[in-house]
Amino acid sequence: MTPIPAGPFRPLPNIIFADDFDRGLEGWTGLIGNYEHSLDSILPGFRDLRPPMLSNASTWDTGTGGGALGTYSMKLATRARAQSLAVGIKRLTFSQACPIQVETLFTFKPEASQLRLSLADVGAIGVILDLQDDRRRVMPHLRYQNAIDGQPAGQWQFKHRTPNFRNIGDSGETVSHFHLGPDGWDDVPNGQQQLCYNEIATKQNWHYLRVGFDLASMSFTALQCNDRHFDVAALQPMTMPAMPNLWCMLNLVFFAEASADRRAFLYVDSVVMSADFGAVERSDGS
């Protein structure tokens, strides 16, 4: 049994995993677009997604900050280029189509390469699920848009419109759609939130995030960040017909996007995914 870390976590009864990055990356890896024959066949947006690394969050002025609950966290670092993306993914399958919940502690900062606040240099950080049941592939997308056009934004958003699929290669077996772009995001109703950024670029405060999703109804059940509980009734996931080879897929993704020509860092610690296996039996009345 994976131990549940200390902190604000309130998981559902069944723990799917609880990743403490003091034990390594624990199955988190980089994301790459689909390809055939050559890496040049990858859709442009997918070609240079930066992969995760283990960080002890050391800064030039105060040294090691560590993780939220230990020494290391998972760090997603973009290139020093506006709209560069860093993405970490963990790939599982589900054993029951039931309510699931993702909890984590996260913080984000730009690279402290200038002696200024840099409040608007991180564009967005986000979390995505990639799911498939017997009928549908479903991709719930959520992000916190920290800044837009160099100005602080502080807005939670979701994306439900599906980008066009494109054929990859010449076999007819591979398709791809770039769903991570900055386009197509809608505001979460009343989704404004000011997060504790602190007063210089090297002071990091960890935030609590909880996302609930029901694999039976394929709908959001919760979005909480720190003390804010957002109404998810209007939130829709990206939905498309089921695809070959993806049955019972349960992927979890975190990402960071730079809004300036400066590296954007998202740090994630102690990711807990939990489920309520009993919900199916209760709904059957058995």
């Binding site: 690394m53 283990l54 960080s55 002890n56 760090k75 670092a77 290139r79």
Partner: peptide
Amino acid sequence: TEPWEAAW
């Protein structure tokens, strides 16, 4: 290359 953290 991009900076890589490897303290562990």
